[in-house]
């Protein structure tokens, strides 16, 4: 009896010791990544916040003695004539891109769920646009959309459409970068929605078929509702990813002509790096606004994912 209690106490004690030792080991394994996150995520973000709250010139940027200026940079940004258009373009770019990426991605995912010859290979090939470096896609689209010699205008001319100045006309620049961005985003939507579709049990479709549902009804009454959680996650993640698109727009149009395709991301870059006289303060301020918007949807995504 006593020995029994003794063993019990002993094992408990040693397991507590082991647990404590496990905690130490765990933190030893985590230490590098935690130090890394502080030094190379938190610190740059802090520097960025600091930049946005001070009045910087090129000299004080190097020397680091810029005077504190409170929210002046934010005021400057809000009253800048570019602010309204940049915000609007960011919204249009993001929402239109996502709407098309999602719709096309979903249609393709449904199409690929039936196993036909080559379906796996073709589905893999659809990933290519997503894997290419953005500079490759952006420069290819730039040449395809070239006003005089681009293949797109040539194809349209066959149908009697007049030459469109895709990248150089203020009316079309935003549309052009949206088209290219939709092309890049389709694979991501396709892959995630396809994996979501795989999760829907087959017997539900069989039951629906027995009840005489047509293919169209099956999609709207069975597939679509059951895919809702995955759809929501895809859309939110797409939102976060699309908000931060910078490379594509910068390479294709530099945000121009005259702000016609400027978004918050390209504007922030232009303020800090695009001019001869850099405006680091306002540039950082725009960047921080973008972070707030991205985090808003990011948190929605995480909440959503936790709930599932």
């Amino acid at each position: 009896m006593t020995s029994h209690v003794e063993t019990l106490v002993r094992t408990r004690g040693s397991s507590r010791v082991r647990r404590a030792r496990g905690q130490w080991a765990a933190w030893a394994f985590l230490a590098p990544v935690i130090i890394y996150l502080v030094a190379f995520y938190a610190y740059p973000l802090y520097r960025n916040l600091d930049l946005s709250l001070r009045h910087y010139t090129v000299r004080s940027f190097v020397q680091g003695d810029a005077p504190f200026s409170g929210v002046d940079n934010y005021k400057t940004v809000f009253s800048d004539p570019t602010f309204g258009p940049a915000l609007l373009h960011t919204m249009v770019f993001t929402l239109v891109s996502i709407a098309f990426q999602f719709a096309i991605g979903l249609a393709l995912a449904v199409f690929f769920t039936s196993h036909f010859k080559l379906s796996a290979t073709l589905r893999a090939l659809f990933l290519v646009p997503w894997l290419l470096p953005l500079i490759v896609s952006a420069s290819t689209w730039s040449w395809m959309l070239n006003s005089d010699s681009g293949i797109v205008n040539y194809a349209l001319s066959i149908f009697g459409v007049d030459q469109i100045n895709w990248l150089t006309s203020p009316d079309w620049a935003l549309t052009s970068v949206i088209i290219a961005n939709i092309w890049i985003g389709i694979p991501f939507n396709l892959v995630i929605l396809y994996s979501g579709l795989q999760g829907i049990p087959n017997d539900i479709y069989e039951a629906a078929a027995l009840d005489g549902a047509t293919g169209w009804q099956r999609f709207w009454r069975v597939t679509f509702p059951l895919l809702r959680p995955v759809s929501l996650i895809t859309l939110l993640l797409g939102l976060v990813y699309t908000l931060k698109v910078f490379d594509l727009i910068w390479i294709m149009t530099k945000g121009g002509p005259t702000d016609a395709s400027t978004t918050l991301a390209t504007w922030s870059y232009r303020l800090s790096f695009g001019n001869l006289l850099p405006e680091f303060g306002p540039g950082a301020a725009v960047g921080n606004l973008l972070i707030i918007i991205a985090l808003f949807f990011g948190l929605l995504y995480i909440r959503r994912q936790r709930r599932d």
Partner: peptide, 15 residues
């Protein structure tokens, strides 16, 4: 993962 790269870049540049 959600922080835009362009903002990280600005912070890194300053550092």
């Amino acid at each position: 993962q959600m922080i835009p790269g362009i903002i990280m870049a600005m912070g890194f540049y300053a550092i």
